[in-house]
Design a binder for these strands. Structure first.
Ligand SMILES: [Zn+2]
Ligand SMILES: [Zn+2]
Ligand SMILES: [Zn+2]
Ligand SMILES: [Zn+2]
Lengths: 180, 180
DNA sequence: TGAATTACGTTATGTTATAACATTGCACAA
DNA sequence: TTGTGCAATGTTATAACATAACGTAATTCA
């Protein structure tokens, strides 16, 4: 495991201790799996991935429980659009971000955790409020095509009109926290 | 079935004919089921619902295929956040909307198909482009709490602090079409 | 130490979605 | 009219994602 990931795990461990929770060995391994793998993984993919990488065996059930824990601790996020999970890319930062925002490449599953300008977010909230709904701390997820894949797709298009990315239909998702 | 729904089905039928596709009896029934039921339904819920309402039996498989057809025809939409389906609320309007936008109540599954101001959408697109992704014709889905449910939840909160909506974690989803 | 709590293991089951292949019904040409 | 093709639907199986229920082990703390 890379030095960088070890540092992140150590930081995550500190965060948990500070919050009175425990980042156990299993939980560290799952988090390491997520950090190690660049793209988003489903719970079942994570089972396989951890088995390969660490020779550890996890039941899918355990992975789900651990992912739930990591989410609570803001160490990982569930991508509702993809039914997959990613490590938080802000483990070392202090602020507890309450509105993580993700771009998910539909082609290669690369995920980018971004910051949407607050005024865009508040414009969205206002529109939603006008419609009689409440949208708070939105976790926004957007199905996209990353530039890499777009370039590849363009190459293909030249050879083979009509196909490739042109057919893909994707979705942007915003998870919001209501209440409190 | 209500007069209003019959009118919508007739309009949908016309649209299909104009496009050279066929809104068969089965397809009409599934669409009627979606129109009849106010909230979003999963494919399996739709199987049950149609059975109850129309005494027709559908295999889940057929329903999935029919939903796929209705989506192509823009007569229904798949809500990627909820893994559920709704009838399009613009069947009678002429413009083929390429950016449907939905608010989904996490509590009662009520769905509202709204219009987000174009400048908000383009601000989002710009942010996404800056991050090296492409977001086109976004179908935005937002998990929300509707005002009705919020009111109810507040009532509960008074009696029972901490619980209810406060725990729900939801997501906004944006489906986008890339290419072309 | 012993009770309470937390984490983890295990098995079963529920839910959503697709694959693969068979059958039906209709349009149209021979 | 019969055959052929094609779209729609039926049927069965299975993949993929997720949770329920219950038991055991480890940890915490009085
Ligand atoms: Zn994060
Ligand atoms: Zn990509
Ligand atoms: Zn619509
Ligand atoms: Zn509601």
């Amino acid at each position: 495991m890379s030095k960088r990931i070890e540092t992140l795990i150590a930081q995550a461990d500190k965060n948990c201790t500070a919050r009175g929770t425990r980042l156990t060995a299993k939980r560290k391994q799952v988090l390491a799996g997520l950090l190690n793998c660049k793209r988003a993984l489903s719970a079942y993919e994570l089972v396989d991935y951890c088995e390969q990488e660490f020779g550890e065996t996890f039941s899918a059930m355990s992975v789900y429980r651990i992912l739930e824990f990591l989410e609570q601790e803001q160490l990982a996020h569930r991508l509702n659009l993809a039914n997959k999970y990613v490590a938080c890319s802000h483990i070392c930062e202090h602020h507890s971000h309450d509105a993580p925002q993700f771009l998910i490449c539909q082609s290669c599953h690369k995920v980018s955790e971004i910051i949407i300008p607050p005024n865009t977010v508040s414009a969205l909230k206002q529109t939603v409020a006008d419609a009689g709904f409440e949208l708070k701390s939105p976790q926004i997820e957007m199905n996209c095509i990353c530039n890499d894949c777009k370039t590849k797709a363009l190459g293909r298009d030249h050879r083979n009109k009509q196909h490739s990315v042109a057919h893909s239909q994707s979705t942007t998702a915003m998870t919001t926290q209501a209440g409190t």
